[in-house]
Each structure stands twice: as structure tokens, then as C-alpha cells.
Computed example of a mutant assay.
Amino acid sequence: MSHSSSDSPVNNSLHPSIAAFLDYLRYEKQHSPHTLSAYQRDLARVMQQASASDIQGWATITEKQLKQWLGLWHEEGLSSRSLQRLISSLRRFYHYLLTRGEVTNNPAQRLRAPKTGRPLPVTLDADQVNHLLDDPHGQAEGDPLKCRDLAILELFYSSGLRLAELAALNLDSFSNGFSQVKVLGKRSKERMIPVGSKARQAIQHWLTFREQLVRGESGRALFLSKLGRRISTRQIQNRIREFAREAGMPVGVHPHMLRHSFASHLLESSGDLRSIQELLGHSDISTTQIYTHLDFQHLATVYDKAHPRAKKKDD
């Protein structure tokens, strides 16, 4: 029987190793707060189950026990995707314990979760992007904040940045007349990305308004809030959603949708998956390969419309 955190005491002897592991990820590996939170949730679940099973230390947990727990959690409704992430967290945690000599084997090494199909990213097509960025209602004219929002949208689509990467940009992140931007990505990996002409124009336009918002605490942040502070990721999400709504977009628009659109449209035009991997800052090309499925969908649609033997004839 599974036990929830509300009805089972936690064995405190299991907790210090998790705390040390999270500190290792935070300070030595420099993982993001979001990633740390995911590890913490996964390991807390395992610790709770171990405590309920009266297990006294990480070294005594077996592969068989972990398989039983995975089955319980699956029956309780934990998705295959969540179970896969939990197994990954466990493997990494036990690898850390091995290096510290706290355990002699990794019981999570051979665990497998039920396979699940990975959903394809949601993208905008080229016409939708143009409708959004061409500012059909002149939202950005004379309005500093709308001008800023348009520059943010252009930069997302031009360079495929992550939300946190864009929010962290400074004026000195750019070089060669704003034609290149240096980005600090996941795990503090730097990469240089080209910036398209439309995005450069939008940024230069925003800079003519930026001085109106500069305060003592503004620093060198590229994008500022109306209070003169660096704009937050939450503000960026809200402003993009509102900008898209006012532009009459038929779908909700968010930063990652623009990143996906950037990658998908670039792949359609170039077919160069390796270069797109570099631009996106993916450490593993298998992450980038998801866009080949989108590209195939596009090609299949073109084929169905254009190939003489693909067209359905009326009976």
C-alpha cells in the first residue's frame, strides 16, 4: 500500500543525503531553480515511500523495491512521463551517492517506465508570425511598453531564445551593431546567436524609449518594466499573451511557442539540424530531432496537396 506525505512520518536519516545532493546541483552544477524543484519533488516522493516501508538508509533500497513503488505510483495515476523523470532523478542521485561512497550500487540503473509518446511542440505558421509581428494595429507606435513588447517578440522569433535567457539580456550582451547576441544558457553555457534585421530594428526603436524608464536600479538590463526594473519572466509571458490577443491572434501565444516556431521554420528552409541544435543550445541532438517530426508533417501536407497521385478524386 502506498502512503502519502500527510499520513506517514519521514525517516530523517534519509534526508541529509538529498539536501547535500541538491546543494551539489545548485552550487557546483548551477542547475536552475526549476530543475532543482523537480529533483526535490521526485526524491521526496521516494524518501516518503522508503520511510513508510521502514527503510533506514539509501544503501538498503533494492531494485525490486523501486519497481514495486513505481507500480504503486503508476496505479495512483502518476503519468509515464513523470515516472520517467523520477527514474532519471533517482539514477542521478544514486550516481552521486556512489561517488561519495554512501552506497555500493545503483538500484535505479536498470529501471524502465512505460513508454509514452512525446507530444509535438505547438508552433505558429509563417503567416501567423507575420500577422503578429507586422503589428497590424500599430500597437507599438508611440507606446514605450508596446514598443518593448514588439522588440521582445521579434527577438524571440529571430534568435530562438529561452524565456530566462531573454529576460537576462543586458545592453552589452550584443555586438556588431546588435547583429549578434551572447546568451548564457542552461548550465551556464554561452553561445553566440545571430539577430535578424527586423529584430535589430525593433530593438533600436525600443532603445529610443528605454531612457524614459531608466532608474538607478535599472543597471544594464535591455528590457525594463514600467518601474524601471529588469522585466521578469512572468511579465514577459503576460505581455506577450496580451499583445497577441490585441493583434487578433486565434491562438494563445507564449515565449516557447516562438522558440519552437523559430526552430521549425529554420529547419524547413535549411534542413540543417546540427546548426539548429547549436542555435537552440541543446546539449543533445535528440532533443532537437523533435523538429524533424514537425518538418515531416509540413512536407506531408505539401505532398498531399501537390502530388497528382495523392489527391483524392470524387467518386
Rank of each mutant, 00 (worst) to 15 (best):
R91A: 06
R92P: 07
R92A: 15
R92N: 12
R92Q: 10
Y96N: 08
Y96S: 10
Y96A: 09
Y96I: 05
L97Y: 00
L98Q: 12
T99Q: 14
T99N: 12
R100C: 13
E102F: 08
V103W: 05
T104C: 03
T104F: 03
T104I: 09
N105E: 14
N106G: 13
P107Q: 10
P107F: 10
P107I: 11
P107Y: 08
L111S: 11
P114C: 10
K115A: 13
T116G: 15
T116V: 12
G117P: 11
R118W: 01
R118S: 14
L120Y: 04
L120Q: 08
P121L: 01
P121S: 02
P121G: 05
V122I: 11
V122H: 14
L124M: 09
D125G: 15
A126E: 12
D127C: 09
D127A: 15
D127K: 10
Q128S: 15
Q128L: 14
H131Y: 02
H131T: 14
L132T: 04
H137A: 01
G138T: 06
G138C: 06
G138V: 05
Q139N: 01
A140E: 04
G142P: 11
G142D: 00
D143A: 03
D143I: 00
P144T: 09
L145S: 11
L145T: 11
K146P: 02
C147P: 11
C147H: 03
R148N: 09
R148G: 08
D149G: 08
L150T: 03
A151S: 05
I152Y: 07
I152T: 11
L153N: 05
L153I: 05
E154I: 05
L155C: 11
L155R: 04
Y157F: 14
Y157V: 09
S159T: 10
G160K: 07
L161N: 13
L163P: 15
L163F: 12
A164V: 14
A164H: 12
A167P: 07
A167R: 02
A168P: 07
L169V: 06
N170A: 11
N170G: 13
L171Q: 09
L171D: 10
D172H: 13
F174L: 01
S175Y: 00
S175F: 00
S175N: 02
N176F: 00
G177I: 00
Q180V: 06
V181H: 07
K182H: 09
G185P: 15
K186H: 06
R187N: 12
S188W: 00
S188H: 07
S188D: 12
K189C: 07
M192D: 09
M192Q: 10
I193N: 04
G196I: 01
G196F: 02
S197G: 04
S197N: 07
S197K: 12
S197C: 02
K198A: 14
A199W: 02
A199C: 08
Q201G: 15
Q201T: 12
Q201L: 11
A202W: 00
A202H: 04
A202N: 06
I203L: 06
I203Y: 04
H205R: 15
W206T: 05
W206V: 07
L207N: 04
L207Y: 02
T208P: 06
T208R: 14
F209S: 06
F209I: 00
R210A: 13
E211D: 14
Q212P: 08
Q212E: 14
V214F: 06
R215N: 14
E217T: 09
S218Q: 04
S218D: 03
S218Y: 02
S218L: 01
S218A: 04
